[in-house]
Design a protein around this nucleic acid. Structure first.
Length: 279
DNA sequence: CAATCGTCCTGCGGGC
DNA sequence: TGCCCGCAGGACGATT
């Protein structure tokens, strides 16, 4: 499931590959994946436009065009954005779940795949981008320089009665953290995922802050984690999967202390932790 | 206010 | 072998 490091990876790769290219055509094979406009309206506004910028906010990938429109893409769990530098388009490059296909004027193509069809692309005017993220009340970017330890402490102090792991995943609290990295951060910080925020000691908060940021940075270096269907813009898996400590490791042994990893459900989400070294 | 549930959807694994 | 069932999950809206 693409989280901050995965979307960041795809953003970096796409920024290199597609900025400056002109969209010659768009094939919308699954219309419901286009939100906010009709497929025809989407096609009309996107066709002929050049890509000027690719960026990321939370788990959203933003592709700006040279005509005052921007595409905002959410990959949800099984979305893939794959760039194929191919002089001539061939049908076999498409996968079963290639739902939207962008054709560039140089013959290369850009696929929006999504096995479970939860993801989408939304067409916004560029000056609506700010209000879009404000309306969703998206929280701060954890890797921004301005996101200091003190900011984290202040933010946590506003939610004393919530459990830490579901809170980390709340997009209005912090941007871009999902089920995998929230569990990993708790493991690295030796904190039980169901701890109430108000019970966290100063030292634990500091450790969580450092762990979270280190994990995210390391995961970006590794081009993300491929657990299920995620691949980067080159259709290649992410290597952080080799560094995963608890996520989806129920019944296996803790890589720090050897205890058996436990799985519980927190706010409806599967959550693995070590009952011995996470306190 | 916080937690839970239903919704979207497909593939996979368990059970028989 | 093959079929059916249930589960997983990001985010949102509705409900308790």
């Amino acid at each position: 499931m693409p989280e901050l490091p995965e979307v960041e990876t795809v953003k970096n790769q796409l920024a290199e590959k597609i900025v400056g290219k002109k969209i010659e055509n768009v094939d919308i094979r699954l219309p419901k994946m286009v939100r906010g406009v009709t497929p025809a309206g989407f096609k009309k506004k996107v066709t002929g436009a050049k890509i000027t910028k690719v960026s990321r906010r939370a788990k959203f990938l933003i592709i700006e065009l040279n005509n005052n429109y921007a595409l905002v893409i959410h990959l949800k769990m099984t979305g893939q954005l794959i760039y194929i530098k191919k002089i001539k388009f061939q049908e076999e490059l498409l996968k079963k779940h290639s739902h939207i296909i962008y054709y560039f004027d140089d013959g290369s193509i850009f696929l929006h795949n999504d096995m479970r069809q939860f993801g989408y692309v939304r067409l916004l005017e560029k000056d609506e981008l700010g209000s879009f993220f404000t309306t969703f009340k998206i929280g701060p970017e954890p890797l921004e320089r301005s996101f200091s330890l003190n900011k984290f402490k202040t933010l946590l102090a506003t939610k004393p009665r919530l459990k830490i792991k579901p809170l980390l995943m709340d997009q209005t609290f912090l941007a871009g953290i999902g089920n995998l990295y929230a569990q990993e951060a708790c493991w690295h910080a030796k904190i039980l995922p169901n701890r109430f925020v108000k019970s966290l000691k100063e030292k634990e908060i500091e450790c969580l802050y450092t762990s979270l940021r280190n994990i995210l940075r390391e995961a970006i270096k590794c081009k993300g984690s491929t657990v299920d269907t995620y691949v980067d813009a080159n259709d290649e898996p992410g290597d952080y999967v080799k560094k995963i400590k608890v996520y989806s490791r129920e019944h296996q042994t803790c890589l720090r202390c050897g205890e058996k990893i436990i799985k519980i459900i927190l706010s409806g989400r599967g959550t693995c932790y070590c009952p011995n070294c996470q306190k």
